[in-house]
Nucleic acid binder design. Sequence first.
DNA 1: TGAACAGTTATCATATTTGATAACTATCAG
DNA 2: CTGATAGTTATCAAATATGATAACTGTTCA
Lengths: 111, 111
Amino acid sequence: MNRSTLTEFKRKALSKPAVDKEYQSLSPAYALRKKLIALRQKAGLTQEQIAEVLHTKKSNISRLENANSVISPKLSTIEQYADAIGYDIEIKFKPKNHRTNRSIGRKKRAD
Amino acid sequence: MNRSTLTEFKRKALSKPAVDKEYQSLSPAYALRKKLIALRQKAGLTQEQIAEVLHTKKSNISRLENANSVISPKLSTIEQYADAIGYDIEIKFKPKNHRTNRSIGRKKRAD
DNA sequence: TGAACAGTTATCATATTTGATAACTATCAG
DNA sequence: CTGATAGTTATCAAATATGATAACTGTTCA
């Protein structure tokens, strides 16, 4: 119970490693969560406020936004979230063999 | 080889009541299914072929594509379907009050 | 007519998401 | 420190999507 300056010490000691960086940016699920968070903050809303609009709880909003959760949300859930922050959604399909071929990895010598 | 899938498609499309014409085109779920069907046929695949790739059954593919079903598919399901026909997906967010400013409504003086 | 093909629909079991609650960390301000 | 705010995580029950099977319609072709 008694933690005076120790608390401040610990909070800095344990910071999140930047493990997931470029990797998951390819995953639509990951990209989605980043967008959700960005748009919500841009709208100046808290998770709790969104939860209220959607008649649910903030913990559920957190789960939706958080990449740690391994859930794949329903389309309607994404839709509702988007609606709460004032957006419509659209699902775009882009051909897989779209070679952007541009500075994706380190260069490899073509032999 | 293209027996009459196109014919069938058209028949279905045209037999839809006019009610869900302009209406549901606003629904992402509806737009999605239309895209799924269109892209699959463009890829020259049958529901059964897609089912095979995804290790499932054609009835499930039908359910996914068919607007009659009131299900809201998971993001991962859409992803897998897209993958089977050679596409990646991306979810786009567009502001609800998107003033395209272009002949949508009458102009009003912004004072 | 009949067989093969493509898609639909119904049903059930299983898997997964979602909702609700509660406890927790962390930050900020008095 | 205390309280308030924002977000996270765990857990369980309830809701819903998905998988599998089977029966069905409609089309095409011989």
